[in-house]
Design a protein around this nucleic acid. Structure first.
Lengths: 254, 254
DNA sequence: TGTTGACATTGACGTAACGTAAAGGTTTAT
DNA sequence: ATAAACCTTTACGTTACGTCAATGTCAACA
């Protein structure tokens, strides 16, 4: 089949201007021109346009698409398989967003509450990583699937009052950690109070508590820079301090 | 919680520049400014930003978002419910695109063939409508779910040769309809041949054939302007002519 | 056969939603 | 106290087209 600009545009759901622009930037040249200069597109161009639109759908810039498709190592099947993977990711992201909308509706109806962080879940890819930190592979490996799922479920169904209480507790915890850190003594009264508060804080998320899991979590605060960064905001180096205090609190040495 | 530009930006997965821009165009003003002019955002702004991002995700222009959200009749829950519906649509579109990618891979591997139209399925919203025409509600109501699903399945698994044969048949069919229409006689030899060819053509898509279903389909060509438009391209008014011929062919009056 | 209306062409400027310096003031950490 | 890491405004750049404007082409109808 052969197509004029408008015909191909209509077929692909784009405008003729777009096709002319793609011609102009050398992304998609017509197969030939008729005697009066009209652009005529053939089968190969239809396929190339399809490929282009797949990339565009994934947010790749036209300049980038051009480079990719003009590369001698370009493999159409390979590219399509990548598209599929990306589209599946995108679908997952959409599902997150949909869950987010539903949760927000529930929040507005006063049924549950949401953290500010949760409010943007699904908007950014990075979020998935951050979420993984809490509910993902690492956490799952450490605490088992049930604990993680239960934790998520718990947070999801918290009431407004629960949340307010949690917020107060979080503030108190952070304050106590800060003050304890200033004393410099992990065995001191303040440090041990911080450990107790941290346990209470944890119980908002965990259904079952064990000293071992608690200790492992606090060790992770030290090992994982993403957590360390958070605690550094309270007081630089306080993640390690909390771990030391926790060793005394739980009685677990290593 | 209170946030500076960068803090809120990081939370929402956008840049500080974006927040300043939203302030500039009056879409999202900070709660207040500190003595040295720093922007400070509060809880209400976090929620408003989330709402904005939902709209942005759906491709709504910032100007439009502003109008919607500043409207006195703006209902947040209502808006979120709409978001959910739109996101579900978008998810469906993505699923179409994924199916399309898989089909294209199969095509490149020579297992099946695709029409040019199919190659762009999922790229445009309008496509869904057009698809509905063939595989959707209307068709389902008329011919039942199994017939429609079978039709889709059949087309999906056609081989290259099948497709070439179908194309030839389509051309012959259209030619015959055109010639028959020129004779003006729906009972004539050519018109009846066109009916026969149309039946053969239909058998490419239908597993079971009945005169009643055939007659109903041709009647739809007349009733539905989207089909009529297609047939008008062969010869204006020929959809009605084909229906008249089909009445004689099938022996069904009305 | 002329004309009308729906197509096509190439400029060229406009636009949305930021990105990206530049030039400077503020806050925080050591 | 001085650097590092923030913040500010101003302003021009960029992408991927939209939207005229001026002009040429083609199929069809009176």
């Amino acid at each position: 089949m052969e197509y004029t600009v408008h015909e191909l545009a209509k077929l692909a759901g784009i405008t003729a201007r777009t096709l002319r622009y793609y011609d102009q930037i050398g992304l998609l040249k017509p197969a030939r021109e008729n005697p009066s200069g009209y652009r005529i597109y053939g089968e190969a161009e239809v396929d190339r346009l399809q490929q282009i639109l797949f990339y565009r759908e994934l947010g790749v810039s036209l300049d980038c698409i051009k480079n990719i498709m003009n590369s001698p190592s370009f493999d159409r099947v390979e590219a399509l398989k990548e598209h599929r993977a990306k589209l599946l990711d995108e679908k997952k992201r959409l599902e997150l967003l949909i869950a987010n909308v539903e949760k927000t509706i529930a929040m507005l109806e006063g049924r549950i509450t949401m953290t500010d962080k949760e409010k943007f879940k699904g908007f950014k890819q990075k979020m998935i990583e951050e979420n993984e930190l809490r509910y993902g592979k690492e956490a799952r490996e450490r605490y088992g699937d049930e604990a993680v799922d239960a934790s998520y479920k718990k947070l999801k169904s918290m009431t407004q009052e629960d949340y307010a209480a949690l917020e107060r507790l979080t503030n108190e915890l952070n304050e106590t950690i800060k003050k304890a850190f200033e004393t410099g003594d992990p065995a001191g009264e303040l440090a041990q109070k911080a450990c107790e508060l941290h346990k209470q804080w944890l119980l908002y998320f965990w259904d079952s508590y064990s000293k071992e899991a608690h200790m492992a979590l606090v060790q992770m605060y030290v090992d994982d820079e993403r957590f360390t960064a958070y605690y550094d905001k309270i007081a630089p180096g306080c993640a390690a301090f909390l771990r030391d205090a926790m060793r005394i609190y739980t009685g677990i040495k290593e």
